[in-house]
Amino acid sequence: MESIKDKVAIVGMGCTKFGENWDKSAEDMLVDAASEAVEDAGIEMKDIQAVWFGTTRLNTAEPCATALKLDYVPVTRVENLCATATEALRNACFGIASGVYDVVLAIGVEKLKDQGMGGLGTVSGAGGNGTMEWGMSAAMFFARMATRYMAHYGMTYEELKQVLAKISVKNHHNGSLNPRAHFQREITEEMAINAPMVSWPLGLYDACGVSDGSAAAVLCRADMAKKFRDDYIMVKGLGLAVGARQGYLQPSYDMVHMEETVRAGQQAYAMAGIKEPFKEIDLAEVHDCFSITEMVITEDLGFCPRGKGPEYVRNGTFKLDGKLAVNPDGGLKSFGHPIGASGLRMIYEIYKQMQGKAGPRQRKNPSLGLTHNFGMNPGSGIGSVTILGQRD
């Protein structure tokens, strides 16, 4: 299989503030994100040859075309649960790499705060073949992962809560440095440990926010990138793995890893030529829908050995000034999670870090960054990984 490495460049990006954007519609946020991305690339909207549009709530591509005044331009709506925005970018990359297009837009949006319910609602759809458990929340599924992690590795409730609190405190600290984040205030470990329970053992500060927001990227052929800017970044690897409910079907599933994340990571690492992720990657934006999820993801992606996540968290390995910064922009926990936009928001942070424009969150001379999304629940999900790097 041929690699995508260094065939596609990102030359412009935009991202709205995430949060309770009561004064903006989904279309308003699409315009804001796309306008910033196009201006950042130094082009006009008329220069966009095709669009991949990610959303889980809008049913067609037409709202995107209308909002951006892209009359008769091919706009393709994509949806892959929480990997939706990254899926928009992945398909846009293939559109460029195929040679069909020179300049395209990947964009995602979600308007969740006006839907008339708290959270994301309950599980529905999913094929209706009886293998899904109906009426259960995401928190409940990931709480199962937390309880299983305790049992599998011999941790007490108190030990686990302390570790998860450190993850939440880290992400709130990073978010406090980010003016576009939904939540911009620090918390303490005591606040996280003693917060109201959502689904035992996960409390309020173990869960990410439900937000409105949009993010966008302008991509082009690698050989054209210098025409747009000097500080463009390169797509090094892409991975996508869909689990086909194997965790539900196989009694051997251990509930302390997500095989879809493992497989997507392996695909992306192979494309990018990465052999030792912990040593080679400088920063990572991962899908911390819950604090336990972030810790398990760091093991799944090879940032630490199996069962050693708590040790690495206690040692500060994944802090902003640690060996490998995880969620330097605040992550889903603090930046928020408008489902159709989150993956591109993660890529926005890597883009800014590679350009040295991340302000107080800036890492020193990063060369490789990773983004990761996970849709659905442990046992059956969608894992998506993107590797991005500096130009040669």
Rank of each mutant, 00 (worst) to 15 (best):
E190V: 14
F142H: 02
T131D: 14
F142Y: 11
M234A: 11
G125T: 07
G135T: 01
W200F: 05
Q250C: 05
A244S: 04
R180I: 07
A215Y: 06
M145P: 00
M224H: 11
A268D: 07
R144T: 02
I167A: 00
L249S: 06
M132L: 13
G213L: 04
N194C: 14
G243R: 11
G175F: 07
P196G: 10
A241V: 09
F183V: 13
S214Y: 10
G209E: 12
A268F: 10
Y153K: 09
D254E: 13
A165Q: 05
A181T: 09
L238N: 04
E189D: 12
M224V: 11
A195H: 10
N174K: 05
D254G: 00
G243K: 01
M191C: 06
K161L: 09
L160S: 02
D206Q: 03
K161G: 00
G127M: 12
A215V: 11
D254L: 13
K166W: 00
M155F: 15
E260N: 15
K227V: 05
C220P: 02
L202P: 00
I167Q: 00
T147D: 04
V235E: 03
H257F: 12
H257M: 14
G237E: 04
E158I: 01
R144I: 02
A241N: 03
M191I: 07
N194T: 15
A244H: 01
H173A: 12
Q246C: 14
L177Q: 05
K166Q: 05
G203S: 09
Q267T: 08
E159S: 12
P251S: 12
G243V: 02
T261R: 08
V123G: 00
S214I: 11
R245L: 12
E133R: 13
Q266T: 06
E260F: 11
P251H: 06
F228W: 14
Y269H: 11
K227R: 09
H173N: 13
T131Y: 15
G125W: 01
P179H: 14
A264C: 14
Y205A: 08
Q250I: 02
M155W: 15
G175K: 07
M255S: 03
R148D: 00
A207H: 07
R263G: 03
N178A: 04
R221N: 15
F228H: 09
Y269P: 09
L177F: 06
D230L: 04
A215H: 07
Q266W: 01
T147A: 09
E158C: 10
G128A: 13
A192L: 08
Q266C: 08
Y153M: 06
N178G: 03
R229E: 00
A244E: 03
H172R: 11
G239I: 01
G127I: 10
F141T: 00
S211C: 08
I233M: 14
K227F: 03
G247P: 06
A138K: 04
S124K: 03
G203A: 06
